[in-house]
Design a protein around this nucleic acid. Structure first.
Length: 451
RNA sequence: GGAUAGGUGGCAGAGUGGUUAUGCGCGGGACUGCAGAUCCCGUCUAUUAGGGUUCAAAUCCCUACCUAUCCUCCA
């Protein structure tokens, strides 16, 4: 398998440190508000990625941090007149709910930053001892001039960063681009430390957490492209300075942005679409379809119109899946891997989920033409089910419902033959309310989930 | 100013040297109790512009213009 690695800037062959096992870390949200669709793009992508790795036999530990304390948390707490941890507990739970609505359930462990204060302080202590960090008037800073590879991930040149003139100039820093490891603070929440009571800086929580679970090196680090600089750059500087290792994560994957009318979807510009609002009107699987029907490394556009046209495409595919699935039950593993060589090939070539979806649409067209031989239909079902293991774009409820739908449709057919259309239409309309769409074609009636 | 991606039909968005991407939309027809879906046909030379390499370029090279993101918290 190969995919785009940010550090080398190339599409690279994937070989984990330990054969058959993958340790992956993905930056989670700062829980001070509901997540929006742009966040979801990244989280759905990595959920899909991890599920695929598992589907092809890797043992994966998927670790995600939760930033449960930040300046934004404190601002929010003030606004809502609540304690900071009430705010982060509330939005952490909301985050988990939103993930659930999008079928994101592959994370092995969520690590909350404030539960790792000892690990954080230990790292800062070691950085100071080794001469990479210094205590200053308002906190402890990482001395970026001591770490030669600072800027390598983002391919930035330190001199030019300074020329950017947007770097905070503070007298307490030795270099403008130095970043804070520990912020001194007298107000709560704060914790004791050898440098005075205060709060951890943002970048240090991730390396403290990953060192705790994985040690100084692991296989894949993921996140959105906005985190490349300075966040991930800082993580590399922190951990490699401590470990002396050549790398922190062997591979770096960054998901591109979801944009809204030419600009990034962000809270500051107020153009966000919250996940919980979107899933009220569209199934989570349709949202996943929309997000995965793109290249993870390319920016994509969201507008209501574009999203709705994507939902139409999803409906078509879902219908084809339901038809195939009711035609052939595949409860066990069957031959799904063997029949899915083309899908595996697409994934192995830079995780081309969009190509997979296009190929499923080709299958859908064949199914709708109604001339698919039984043997062929079985391989189609296998492909659908294999792809769905990681794409998660089809509702699978169809299999259980089949037992009820058969007899029910038979009754309705008899009603229609007797000309009792009022009664038969009522059945159709009630089923639609329940999320089941039935359609009459010459001679037979089909049903599917969604619509 | 620097860095990184890009500029493809009405819309979204694949494709890295030669073949119909795919979906949505639009027009016409078929099917139908109605609805919906589906099928068939069509949607004019779709590849930012100008050079170059090549038998052949959306795909490689050069130039120009344009866009997004990052350089500040951000998925």
């Amino acid at each position: 398998m190969r995919f785009r690695d940010t550090l080398s800037g190339e599409v690279k062959e994937f070989t984990p440190i330990a054969e058959g096992r993958v340790n992956i870390f993905v930056c989670g949200p700062t829980v001070y508000d509901y997540i929006q669709l742009g966040n979801a793009r990244t989280f759905v992508f990595f959920d899909m990625f991890v599920k695929y790795l598992r589907a092809i036999g890797y043992e994966v530990f998927y670790l995600q941090n939760i930033t449960d304390l930040d300046d934004k948390t404190l601002t929010r707490a003030k606004e809502e007149k609540k304690e900071w941890d009430e705010v982060s507990n509330f939005y952490y739970k909301a985050y988990l709910d939103d993930c659930k609505s999008l079928d994101i359930d592959s994370v092995s462990h969520h690590a909350r930053a404030t539960l790792y204060l000892e690990e954080i302080k230990s790292q800062i202590l070691r950085l100071i001892k080794l001469g990479y960090a210094y205590a200053s008037s308002d906190g402890v800073y990482f001395d970026t001039s001591k770490f030669r590879d600072y800027g390598k991930l983002s391919k930035q040149n330190l001199d030019q960063i300074i020329m950017g003139a947007r770097v905070e100039i503070r007298a307490s820093k030795k270099n403008p681009q130095d970043f804070v490891l520990w912020k001194l603070a007298d107000d709560k929440p704060n914790w004791n430390s050898p440098w005075g009571s205060g709060r951890p800086g943002w970048h240090i929580e991730d390396t403290a957490i990953t060192e705790h679970f994985f040690g100084p090196e692991y296989d894949v680090h993921g996140g959105g492209t906005d985190l490349i600089f300075p966040h991930h750059e800082a993580e590399i500087a922190q951990m490699r300075s401590i470990s002396g290792s050549k790398f922190l994560s062997k591979y770096w994957i960054h998901g591109a942005f979801l944009n809204f009318k030419g600009e990034k979807m962000s809270k500051s510009t107020g153009n966000v679409v919250k996940v919980r609002d979107l899933v009220k009107s569209s199934p989570g699987s349709a949202v996943r379809y929309f997000l995965l029907n793109s290249n993870y490394s390319s920016e994509m556009l969201y507008t209501d119109e574009v999203f709705q046209s994507s939902v139409e495409g999803w409906k078509r595919l879902q219908k084809a899946f339901s038809i195939a699935n009711s035609f052939h039950k595949c409860t066990e593993e069957c031959r799904i891997e063997k029949d899915s060589a083309d899908i595996i090939a697409f994934m192995d070539d830079d995780l081309k989920t969009r190509e997979i979806i296009a190929s499923l649409h080709d299958i859908a067209s064949e199914i709708f033409k109604g001339k698919v031989a039984e043997k062929q239909m079985i391989t189609y079902v296998h492909k659908f089910r294999f792809a769905n293991k990681f794409l998660g774009i089809f509702s699978e409820q169809a299999t259980n419902l089949g037992q009820i739908m058969g007899p029910l449709l038979q009754v309705r057919k008899e009603l229609r033959e007797m000309g009792l259309y009022k009664e038969s239409d009522m059945i159709r309309s009630k089923l639609k309310d329940a999320g089941i769409v039935i359609e009459d074609k010459s001679g037979e009636t089909t049903w599917s989930i969604g619509g």
